[in-house]
Design a protein around this nucleic acid. Structure first.
Lengths: 339, 339
DNA sequence: TTGAATATCGAAAACGGTTTCGTAAATAAA
DNA sequence: TTTATTTACGAAACCGTTTTCGATATTCAA
């Protein structure tokens, strides 16, 4: 049989298309009896309206885009969960795009969002992103968007982030208080807002304690695949035996540190203390249990979505710096930083 | 300024809409010079066609739906990654829907997929799903879809799964070989294909070794939130001190088993051996390292997507039982099952 | 009783592309 | 030169909704 459109529905009911359309959306200009009939028939035939026809006419898609570097990551998984939780209540659809940390991909994806495919976009910038022209386009086209977690600094847009600087500071202080003399900060990309802020907090704490001369002595960039990260960490520790504490700026670095420590029988926390920015559920049952700075991932996603939807609904897109929300992370001490 | 449509593009170029449209898709009926001009102008004005207009006319959406129970789960995150990896090469968009293990939600979501919003759907059934009427609808409407990981038994559709029965069998054998006398199987929902198969393999192995009388003595259903699971596991172990080995049918059960073991100072593997179906990256660095049966999550997602796209492209949807693909999992022994 | 207001519906114009088909000019064949 | 073919383009229909606006019938006020 042919596709079930509103036209066939109308014919079946002996009504006009317009009437059926209005009846389905409970318009006041349709009598309640006809409404009942239409609803009944729609139910019976299992009619479900074509969303694209509707979107085309109404110029809104009931869809949002989420653009993020990767999905196989605890933080982002949880954030997606938070986003979904509010999208569901709004009856919105969510498209997921992965930038794979590539600037090019991110740019292209953002560009596609200019087409009207989505009513808004949630974005966590890739580590390569160094230019904001594509964000500017979104703004020019008046498409609501908000950064979550990884923002682009110096670009005015709503941002839902965590207290990265402060946490970097706290992490360093913790290591020092536990007796570390040569703590190091493992970054992934210093042009990533979260990393630069965390490392800034870290170095600030060290400076405050009179520890630091050269930033590069203590802040190391680690990028690449898990394997290459493993190698880098191994090299680092081999060439710098004085390092007795590490702050891992992101989760996957922490895992490799542990891997390296078992491979080279470095005992944590005796020889090396570790604190990691991480939402790993398994942190308490690692060997040893891992001290973490845990971001409120779900809440970040959730509030980012909420902000986005108020923008979509209020058509008030010109929100600026004052719409930055900071959801604090929590430092949870465990055995990897025992004195 | 007003929206940039193909109409304004045409006007700007002094060409007809039809010509511009054809030029943009490199039609042979357009001269190469006009094509060049059109492309240049499109590039300059940053024209990006309205996907809904296109979808409406062409009756295809370049979009697939992925319906799964949850996303904050290692397996599903990796599977999504696999799905994305092929969707990207096909220039397809992917919509993510979460059923939250609810049959109702799954049904509604599937129903929405009947609207033409998507060209195909990838689905991992919820643990509550006991009826296949909604799948039947998809089939009737000729919408390609394939199950991944969690299939619906007795429903003919392409399925990309792993060797659950065999792995359940192997897990039991492993525990027995390590000296366990009273192994238990922690299930989450016995009407879930993966769990019933895994437990069937498990009990088969026990039966083969002359161990079992009553299935329910050894197979326990654990559902709920992490907290309630914790309580259930704790109760189980308290009331059944004879249990000296556990097969965790899903990842989140394993985590709670570890939590319970630290809370009650039960030593793994001495007092309790554990093997878990899991893709946890942290398995090697847990305390103790966790023996896992690791599913090829990425590959399952990837091949599921590949199968889906061949269905979409070939318009050959009537694939039946013979299109079941089994990607084997691998048992990785670690310290949680040391003899 | 008459004019105005209201209730209920339908015709038709959008929305922004794609595609069919027709046409005019240019080229090739006769 | 005439006819047939090819090339390059445009007019218009179409996809399935929503929405404006007009039309008719009914109810109400005067």
């Amino acid at each position: 049989m042919s596709k079930l459109t509103i036209k066939t529905l109308a014919k079946e009911l002996g009504l006009s298309i317009a009437t059926v359309s209005k009846a389905l959306k409970d318009s006041h200009e349709i009598s309640s009896e006809t409404k009942k009939k239409v609803l009944a028939m729609a139910e019976q035939l299992n009619y479900v309206p074509n969303p694209y026809a509707s979107s085309l006419r109404k110029q809104k898609s009931k869809t949002i885009a989420v653009i993020l570097p990767e999905v196989a990551d605890n933080f982002f998984s949880l954030a997606i969960n938070g986003i979904q939780s509010v999208a569901e209540t709004k009856n919105y659809h969510v498209l997921i795009y992965l930038s794979h940390e590539s600037f090019e991909i991110e740019k292209n994806t953002v560009n596609h969002c200019l087409s009207g495919r989505v009513d808004g976009v949630l974005l966590s910038v890739s580590s390569e992103t160094s230019d904001a022209a594509h964000f500017e386009k979104l703004k020019n086209e008046n498409i609501p968007f908000v950064f979550f977690d990884r923002e682009f600094e110096n670009f005015a847009a709503p941002k839902i982030i965590t207290n990265d600087y402060e946490c970097g500071f706290l992490a360093a202080k913790l290591l020092l208080s536990k007796g570390c003399k040569h703590p190091a900060f493992l970054s992934t990309s210093e042009n990533l807002s979260i990393c630069s802020k965390r490392s800034a907090g870290f170095t600030a704490a060290l400076t405050e304690e009179g520890f630091i001369k050269d930033k590069h002595e203590f802040v190391i960039d680690c990028t690449g695949t898990p394997d290459t990260i493993f190698d880098q960490v191994q090299e680092l520790l081999k060439n710098n035996p004085q390092i007795d504490g590490i702050v891992a700026s992101v989760e996957r670095l922490a895992m490799q540190i542990y891997m390296v420590s078992v491979a080279n029988s470095i005992t944590i926390p005796k020889e090396l203390k570790v604190v990691a920015f991480s939402t790993l559920e398994t942190a308490p049952i690692l060997n040893p249990s891992l001290t973490t700075i845990t971001q409120p991932a779900f809440e970040i996603g959730k509030t980012a979505a909420e902000v986005l939807f108020t923008m979509i609904e209020k058509k008030k897109h010109n929100i600026t710096a004052d719409s930055v929300m900071i959801l604090p992370s929590t430092l949870i001490e465990r055995n990897s930083t025992l004195a």
